[in-house]
Design a protein around this nucleic acid. Structure first.
Lengths: 201, 201
DNA sequence: TGGGTCATGTAACCGGTTACATGATTTT
DNA sequence: AAAATCATGTAACCGGTTACATGACCCA
């Protein structure tokens, strides 16, 4: 049967359009923020700025950076001596693509793939004490993240990530308190101000 | 060279241990909450309870549910007539596995794979007005999510997800305000109470 | 100078996505 | 009873993960 695309094999259509994934943009962004850097540098830069938001395993950095270079969004140079490190820098095209992506007003599909939150979705299978433990665990984990980010010398990188960590802590903390105090529903039936996590201290 | 596992090929170790992914538990949880249901039911149940936290495309429900049935965590029955729907129900083993997973105190790696937050990590490449737009967009998107969840008849499913939506809205709203008002840093250098997003109204 | 760690890279597998496809039910 | 839509399912590709591997650099 004939494809909906007409006579064109959809696979070829796809393969001629090297798609940029979120990971691609994470790389582009890291290079843009850092200037010339090697794949290994990128690993650290990403860990510091995006951190737990979007981890990219180092194995992928090599493939993806090379791909972006082939697409003309990064330039690739290699040391002549020693480890023959590769070094990448963003091109004008790359910066344009990055900014276009950052600026598109169109909705990105919201998706939060955090295992803690997934568990929370099934929290009604647990009793309150267990939910409280869950909340405490994740509060601790986020505190650690926040402190790690705060310990960075360069305070500006990860500024927003730190803000997120704070918000996440507030969320889990509020949740824990609402489970501890039977009077406080995790969510009122009519969403309103009470929904909003409030600072503790 | 000999494998670190000794004489056992790690691949065979892996393949004899059908691993349960987060998606597996999402399915188990949905079945546990719902009772007997078809893959198609699961799609809707997940959309309502976990919603944007963890989307599972319907194509995967068939494979994964069958896999879980093979592993003895779900039972599988099929209609004799008509569409010959498959119906799944959780087994005792399945419930145990689910609860064990829900209760493990061990840290899950925190990872938030939301494109909006990824963009935020590179927000310093944008000027304040653009960051404000970004924040407004995502505030709107989350509002929509929250309202969709609130419109559900069954108020209890998705209770915690609604709480999360509220927190996310507060985060983006606070961020937007902090960008609008030059005096309010998105994050103070020393993290503290001011970090926490505060309810608007 | 050799053992340990740092830094870099490769390769295979697999879960998840996307595209394709079709029978059952509802609607007009 | 045809068209539209609902519900169900299959299949191939590919990004991302995990495991493997090895040269450079550091330090005793």
């Amino acid at each position: 049967m004939r494809s909906w695309y007409g006579s064109v094999d959809p696979r070829s259509v796809r393969s001629t359009t090297p798609r940029l994934t979120a990971t691609s943009f994470a790389l582009l962004g890291a290079v843009a923020q850092t200037g010339p850097c090697s794949p290994y540098d990128l690993k650290r830069v990403l860990a510091r700025s995006i951190g737990p938001l979007w981890e990219v395993p180092h194995s992928q950095l090599y493939d993806e950076a090379a791909r972006l270079a082939r697409a003309g969004l990064l330039t690739e140079t290699q040391e002549g001596k020693g480890r023959r490190r590769l070094s990448y820098e963003i091109t004008e095209d790359g910066r344009r693509a990055l900014l276009r992506w950052l600026r598109v007003p169109g909705r990105d599909r919201i998706e939060i793939r955090d295992v803690g939150l997934l568990k929370l979705g099934f929290a009604d299978l647990l009793d309150p004490a267990e939910v409280r433990h869950l909340a405490q665990d994740h509060l601790d984990a986020w505190r650690e993240v926040r402190d790690d980010l705060a310990a960075e010398v360069d305070g500006s990188a990860g500024r927003y990530t730190r803000a997120l960590a704070g918000a996440a802590m507030a969320f889990w903390e509020h949740l824990e308190r609402s489970v501890s105090e039977p009077g406080t529903p995790p969510t009122p039936d009519v969403p309103g101000p009470a929904l909003v996590p409030v600072g503790a201290d």
